[in-house]
Amino acid sequence: MARPLLEVTDLRKQYQARAGMLAALHGRTRSVPAVDGVSFGLSEHETLGLVGESGCGKTTIGRIVLGVTPASSGRVVFDGHEITALRPRALRPLRKQMQMIFQDLDAALNPRMRVRDILREAITLHHRLEQTEVARRTSELLDQVNLKSAKLASFPHELSGGEKRRVGIARVLAVGARFIVADEPTSALDVSIQAQIVNLLRDLQTRLGLSYLFISHDLEVVELVSHRVAVMYLGRIVEIGPAERVARASRHPYTSILWSSLVEKRSDEVARNGAAAWGVFDFERPGQGCRFAPRCPVYEAAGRPAICTDPTSEPTLRDVGDGQSVACHFPLAR
């Protein structure tokens, strides 16, 4: 792969949770770690898929990487610029290069603006252009996202879901972005439209050499579009590696459970599988070792080994070969 475009090192983000009234009187606030020591890299022309269940911190990472949400600690370096150290004003020139596709289809679209004006705004944002040049660029963008020019006069509420998504993508391309954080770009779309958008994103990557941080809970789509996949559980990456290996040869028990939940089973096998009580990791009791242990079938099967709940030995990512890394004391065999 080409040189690294994005490097994330030991990223952390704590949110101050709203505590009860009594705790507020005592002046105590709880802090809940949304992202808890995450490191990864992204090369040019690469897609890194970020998967995990809701609340695992994947969206927060996307927002920190773009400098929308400040990090509590850690470093994000994009193309030599340390995002985490820049003030919002200094970030603005970088917006030309890094952009976001929002889960919400309406995110990019001011309800009172026509598609033409939405695109014009993005085109002229970082470049002063002649009217004819703006028109040329507009039609080029429409072409790139397969949108009919008749839609230019439409207001957002007159567009279908797929069209809204295309306008959102065109808008991101309009500023000239080459790195795009795609936050659940297909989850709000119909099945038949999802495939169109997945293809579109892949085509654009080939044609324009884009890099994606592809955040999604849809494992199948992630597996399909990503070169590498990182699996998150409660704020940490538990496994990262080439998409095919993570999906088909998972080494972390959680990854394996995630992907096996896709396998179509008519029986109640799945229910029996996880009949072990699915406890919930408690952030307020620090240092319980591996945070997946309370839900982990391997932990149960191995007779609850002490190391898994040893507060001093929370597993960290280690290389298990073939570009795959896993944070587990007892990684699954191949």
Partner: peptide
């Protein structure tokens, strides 16, 4: 979210 999107756009 369109306000945030405008912010991210730069």
């Amino acid at each position: 979210s369109f306000i945030e999107a405008a912010h991210v756009l730069g």
